[in-house]
Design a protein around this nucleic acid. Structure first.
Lengths: 190, 190
DNA sequence: CTTTAAAATGAATATATATTCGCTTATATT
DNA sequence: AATATAAGCGAATATATATTCATTTTAAAG
């Protein structure tokens, strides 16, 4: 017997991401995805029950990936500011390299495709970020404001930065990245 | 003879905004819009050539509105920081009160509906914001970084703040708003 | 009050898209 | 090597959606 091919799921995801980033969620059909992935339309239905399931699975996969990558190299022994900068850079790098995911996630959030269940699970993955900010507050390094507010501020600014970078084809060199981090840090610091 | 009804355009726009904010751009049909607006589907085509034209017109209208409102009460005589805060609050208030527009604009940006021409025109309306930041730099009050970067940071953070506020049904009281402004100002200040 | 031209209608049509299904092909297992 | 079983296919089908159009309603103009 033949087995399902893990690589094919990756192909399908990549195709969907590319297309959504290019045309928006509303402009992408199952036919488009299969063509871009280099497989038959029917094959999509071997891997996913339908469009809804495909989109939800991709959403969940993107979210997990991005959280995973964020804390790479994190060690509570390291002083807060460099540890925070490391995470901030991890996220920024990830988003720049996976721009399509940024757009995809944004487009999905307000769409009939994503189920509440999927949304819930994505939210739960944010816990480590809350914990990080609380550490910074305990050490009196960052403002004693609502942690959700602080995170919102940082993530919103970064997302917009990533989007603008792609729209305007500005290259985000090391100097600009450091400036952006300084804006972020100056905003947070107590 | 009968005349076209300006109020009807507003109804159509409001209906489209409500629906897109609720279901996302991909989940909204011309039938949905006409039903929500309380008119027949055919009537939509009296006012707009088709879905594309409707979406582009709404996008342009939203953008114009929001820029218009931002500078309400601006006067170059007023010192920079309070003038800036006034504009920042104008934008925040507008976005909170017109949440649907925030979602609609975001969903539109990466979609096949919006034409390059529409996108261009929207961009041109940003000129006054660039000028404002340059004033702040001349007066040595804010960082001498790329103005685009500074604006990106502010707007991104604010958009996310507005979205999070709605998702989590947190009420953004005066104290939280001031905290958010302080984050923003501390990020910018020289 | 009548005329007239355009708005308004919504069922009918055209089009686009998701999904299914009978068939073929590939590959694990024996 | 033979067999079995699921993947892979893509044309056909079902469904959803945009758009048109013959008809009715509305209100401005004479």
């Amino acid at each position: 017997m033949k087995r399902k091919d893990d690589k094919k799921v990756t192909q399908i995801f990549q195709a969907a991401l590319r297309l959504v980033a290019e045309k928006g969620l509303s402009g992408v059909t199952m036919g488009d995805i299969s063509r871009e992935a280099g497989i038959a339309t029917g094959t999509l239905y071997v891997y996913f029950k339908g469009k809804d399931e495909l989109i939800n699975a991709l959403f969940a996969a993107c979210r997990e990936n991005s959280v995973q990558v964020s804390f790479k190299g994190y060690n509570p022994q390291i002083p807060f500011k460099p540890a925070f900068k490391n995470i901030w850079l991890n996220i920024l790098r990830y988003k720049l390299q996976h721009f399509e995911e940024v757009i995809f996630m944004e487009q999905c959030y307000h769409s009939p495709f994503i189920t509440n269940d999927t949304r819930e699970k994505a939210l739960q993955l944010s816990a480590p970020f809350y914990a990080l900010m609380e550490r910074g507050q305990k050490e009196q390094l960052i403002k004693q404001a609502d942690v959700g507010l602080l995170l919102t501020f940082i993530i919103g600014a970064m997302n917009e930065l990533v989007k603008q970078t792609h729209y305007s084809s500005i290259t985000l060199n090391r100097s600009k990245i450091n400036t952006a981090f300084d804006l972020c840090w100056d905003a947070l610091k107590a």
